[in-house]
Design a protein around this nucleic acid. Sequence first.
DNA 1: GTTTAGTATGAAACCGTTTTCAAGATCAAG
DNA 2: CTTGATCTTGAAAACGGTTTCATACTAAAC
Lengths: 339, 339
Amino acid sequence: MSQSSHASTASTLHEVARIAGVSPSTVSRILNGTARVSDDKRKAVEAAIANLSYKPNLLAQGLKKGRAMTIGILTQDLASPFFTEALMGVEAALAGSGYAPLIVSGHWHADEEAERVELLMARRVDGIVILSGSLSDKQIGRFAERLPIVATGRRIDTGQARGIALDQLEGARLATDYLLELGHRQIAFIAGLPEHDDARARLAGYRAALEAAGIAFNPALVVQGNFQESGGLLAVNELLETRQRFTAIFCANDQTAYGARLALYRRGIRVPDDISIIGFDDLPNSNYTTPPLTTVRQPVYEMGKQAARTVLQLLNGETPTLTQLPLELIMRESARRIL
Amino acid sequence: MSQSSHASTASTLHEVARIAGVSPSTVSRILNGTARVSDDKRKAVEAAIANLSYKPNLLAQGLKKGRAMTIGILTQDLASPFFTEALMGVEAALAGSGYAPLIVSGHWHADEEAERVELLMARRVDGIVILSGSLSDKQIGRFAERLPIVATGRRIDTGQARGIALDQLEGARLATDYLLELGHRQIAFIAGLPEHDDARARLAGYRAALEAAGIAFNPALVVQGNFQESGGLLAVNELLETRQRFTAIFCANDQTAYGARLALYRRGIRVPDDISIIGFDDLPNSNYTTPPLTTVRQPVYEMGKQAARTVLQLLNGETPTLTQLPLELIMRESARRIL
DNA sequence: GTTTAGTATGAAACCGTTTTCAAGATCAAG
DNA sequence: CTTGATCTTGAAAACGGTTTCATACTAAAC
């Protein structure tokens, strides 16, 4: 018994025209400032608009103009602080541009991601920002035949596709070097998901730093995580059971570090007194863990911002100005000099 | 020198019709299954669709049907885990419904929120979910004259507006009772922002529980926070300086608890051995703090889900089935019996 | 006063769909 | 065979805007 939903229907440009006693064309012209209009008509139209509290139908506008004033954002996990921070950057870049973000989530699954991108295109978004994910460069390239796309975590620069990549390997080297500098020699590594480019690059950075310092890579010290707290926890337990000696743990990301830290806490192992921990990402929370987490800061906010700005530039036919964003070691209290 | 953006234009229903040698009406009918169509034409059309990889223009569809298949979501802070979890719930409820969420953020500022809602309506969203915020019930009521709105954190039930409120007072009582039960008698409270309804309700719950237990309310034990880590940290410092004795701290939310915990850590005060801490929200992270945080779980995911589901029901003319969602005490390791 | 250029405005076409309406085709019943 | 009912299909109008085009009107130039 559908309570006859009394949705008072919105007013249209035609009504405004009728009330003001002018033609629709004139109203449109006034709205867009696309031609001069006599003062009296303008007054009348403005009065009518205020009166009806008329707001143009963005759907109709988008259809006619061929620009929906929307940027599609493909994220992977709404709950992950990493992605939300990037989202904040995107939001900031889009603010005031007239473009609204349409956010969809792919959940790290290539098929779902492709489907979501199709959805965005069906909604006729004007451009797309892809935050990481598992789509192949080729697929992205194909999508980019239709509209500008900026993807993070990859290096592409073809047609209307751009990539913004952070130097993960360098970041991992930064972290490892720091531990080495503090005197650590047995450094465990909790890896991310191997199908993940970034994860492999970080592992590579860890190895590279070790080798540069003349320390043999010990496979027994690297154990698989999953980029989540649970993986860090399990990994540390595993590590402890193998009875390998180590004085520091480098975690593939901060969430992993949180889990690792809890595992140590459970066994009464002190951080950083007994074991040092270093993370990767610098999530907002890492400033408030006990102890505050030493980590490698990824400028994800700036990355999101730059990605969105680049899409906007592509849309305006400008040549985008992509600058390499640096990773940075954030020294807090979870790692200390070995005695 | 706008590099002639080669956006290969998307195919339209008319092209499909032309290629298949039928009228646009027929194509539309096949797409929507709105009438029977002879087998040969259907085959031809399906071939043409696959051939052109045609996807209907959702903008045009929305314009024509008067339904944009979009639900507007007004959130406050993309970075806050509280809101993102609600967002996840919304996403889950919308999945497979054909409706896409259009997420905008109001940043806790009533003016901005109103403006964002206007924007959503200009985009002709079919319904709106408002996650908390500072809009007055009256304003929401006015918006709800045009479309269905479900708002969390309030009790409204007028026309097309619905509210989903959690019993904050009860939650705070749960937490306080638990501490009392553990033998605590001097319980500090770090309050949220006073202009925030929930914050006041939680304070009231704390007082109610105290009084029910025959313990005099001590104003010196409640200190102002800001719902953020920084506020918790400052508040604990303040508390410690007043030299008031207390054995437990009840924090208005988990983020506050994180800050409080760090302040204690800095002074070498152990949790829970020296002081117990209890939070409110049960953010995902609270399972991985050291020690894991005892807290009151707010079912925000379910709340977001229910909110979105309710909008959908309102849209279909069904009478929504709103069930009160219970708060729940999550006992972890940050609070313990006093000796 | 006629011609020219320029201005303000409205009519109508269009964006890509859906849907009403009417017509043509098919077929069973009489 | 008609007749009427049923089914398939296309033409055209509509959704709410923008934009091209044409026109009536001024104002300037000769």
